[in-house]
Design a binder for these strands. Structure first.
Ligand SMILES: [Mn+2]
Ligand SMILES: [Mn+2]
Ligand SMILES: [Mn+2]
Ligand SMILES: [Mn+2]
Lengths: 220, 220
DNA sequence: TTAAATTTTTAGGTAAATCTAAAAATTTTT
DNA sequence: AAAAATTTTTAGATTTACCTAAAAATTTAA
């Protein structure tokens, strides 16, 4: 059984490992909003428990057990987010902090029944995949909007930034999950992207385009 | 902002204060499954924070703030129990431990929306009243089944014991909330109670009868 | 109203998760 | 390949929530 804190470390390491193979102390510290010295302490503890492999000065990797635990927390986090949005009418930018707490409730029964109650959803309100109870989920193949070329089309199926400011901005622009988009132009001057939606034409900055994930329908 | 632990102490003190006016250190220790010395430590801390009034050797009472905090936790606990039973199909004997964790999730928005989602329930699965968001709730007037006389009738509206063993037993006997009962006899030998339900006749021990709460329909 | 029993507190410590400051190792630059 | 910069670890404290053992206060019984 892990503490609330250990679970958060495992989850953080898991997410960082999606980007870089060996996860560094400082990266964990930044993500966890704590100090590198504290991270070293915790890493040793997790290593003792067999949840991470650790060689001094060379970062950490999750063991099989550690990874499974992390995935289980991710599963809970995302299921709770679906609950908050679909059942309690929260907005997609309001759910993260509460899910951050709910993910630590320890009851297998609870999460299985919640999953069923929600109709076994495959993705959370931000398009992130929800692992099933065995920890399995499809590694979805997203393309960043910024990588699309002029004339490309696709559907918004995720975001890679969960800050409330960003999500609120997308909502205001009408760029929500499931929306069909078409790249009508890429501005020479600043690289901003001109997008055609079903009902309107908008322009978004490169910075915004970086964090929108598209499932491509191919060129058209 | 209180810690998880402080909240549990406040809730425990609140419940004990429903029975005895001044709440003793040992009583808190027993309820919290901890040692009296630890309770003394925590009481001092709660007193420093203005959540309890405390005079050495004379037990504690909740301050107004302390009481409001406790009631808020009770509200959360009971709303989550309703959620678990009504939405996730838990049995009434399975919800306590999970609610014990869920009650500490800190989000006013969450609990208000949950309340609404559940249809603003007035009582939890055990018949205990749910405070509204201002902490108000009717002090329900229950009579213990054991206090009824032969010939009395009433409706089961609560239980004063939440152990899984007791609740499962009641369920098996068909003594669930809302059931109409009629006292057909009180056995001379052991004081056990003969009860007529709509469809059958059963006999329960004094021990069981003590913990069933009845809203009396008057004699008939 | 003493003595005995019970309750409560104090004193002194432990373990978990932090922190700051300084030392050590590694990586990058010159 | 040094020097400089960065990253990481160690050393030593702090805070929270516990604990045990012993002392002090209160309550109950003789
Ligand atoms: Mn968390
Ligand atoms: Mn999400
Ligand atoms: Mn609790
Ligand atoms: Mn209850």
């Amino acid at each position: 059984m892990q503490s609330y804190t250990e679970e958060n470390y495992l989850k953080t390491i898991y997410h960082l490992a999606e980007k870089t193979t060996n996860v560094q102390t400082n990266a964990i510290a930044e993500q966890m909003q704590t100090k590198p010295a504290s991270v070293t302490d915790m890493i040793k503890k997790l290593a003792d428990k067999g949840l991470v492999d650790y060689i001094k000065y060379q970062g950490v990797t999750l063991t099989e057990t550690g990874k499974n635990t992390a995935i289980d927390i991710v599963r809970k986090h995302r299921l709770w987010e679906v609950f908050l949005v679909n059942k309690l009418n929260f907005k997609w930018d309001e759910v993260h902090d509460v899910a951050e707490e709910l993910e630590h409730i320890k009851s297998i029964e609870l999460i299985e029944r919640l999953d069923e109650f929600l109709g076994f959803p495959k993705a959370d309100p931000h398009g992130d995949p929800i692992p099933d109870k065995n920890g399995r989920f499809a590694k979805t193949q997203f393309i960043k909007l910024i990588e699309l070329k002029m004339g490309d089309s696709g559907t918004i199926t995720g975001v890679s930034q969960h800050s409330s400011a960003f999500l609120k901005h997308l909502e205001k622009l009408g760029l929500t999950l499931g929306k069909q988009i078409h790249i009508s132009d890429i501005t020479d001057f600043d690289g901003s992207v001109e997008i055609r939606l079903s009902d309107k034409q908008i322009n978004i900055s490169r910075e915004v385009a970086k964090h929108i994930l598209i499932s491509s329908d191919g060129k058209n």
